[in-house]
């Protein structure tokens, strides 16, 4: 019972890690908006989480999902539309930044909820 609770929380932790890393990567993309031949980077985490959840490994505790599985990949150069070879779209990055920040806040709220549940159980519901 307790281990299940912990497993649930560790998934949120990985998601928090991914969101934090994504914030870094988006900051890096925004920082390099004027760098010639820079290709934007993205963080891949959700696909991995989905495939792990579909395979049912997570609920059995057999998941190999760790924060180190979070991948950073470069966007292909073919999507470049600027003459300087840079493919950072600043509007897109700002939108992703805002979305990621909200996602992070949501996850923090969620993990706080998990802790609150645990506290509630420890207090015996009083």
């Amino acid at each position: 019972m307790l281990s299940k609770l912990l497993f649930n929380r560790s998934n949120i932790e990985h998601a928090l890690d991914a969101a934090w890393l994504r914030n870094e990567v988006i900051s890096h993309n925004i920082a390099n908006v004027d760098t010639p031949n820079y290709k934007r980077k993205t963080v891949q985490f959700e696909q991995l989480l989905t495939s792990e959840m579909k395979s049912g490994k997570i609920s059995h505790g057999a998941s190999k999902l760790t924060s180190r599985n979070i991948r950073i990949v470069e966007d292909p150069s073919s999507s470049s539309y600027r003459s300087d070879g840079n493919n950072v779209d600043i509007e897109n990055e700002m939108a992703l930044l805002a979305a990621n920040s909200i996602r992070y806040n949501t996850l923090v709220q969620k993990i706080n909820g998990e802790f609150q549940k645990l506290k509630n159980v420890i207090r015996g519901g009083r």
Binding site: W20, E24, S27, E93, L97, A98, S101, Y104
Partner: peptide
């Protein structure tokens, strides 16, 4: 300005943590 926004976003996330 875009980078200031990014910095503020990082700051709010760190404080939220």
């Amino acid at each position: 300005e875009a980078n200031v926004t990014a910095l503020n976003s990082s700051k709010s996330m760190a404080l939220k943590a």
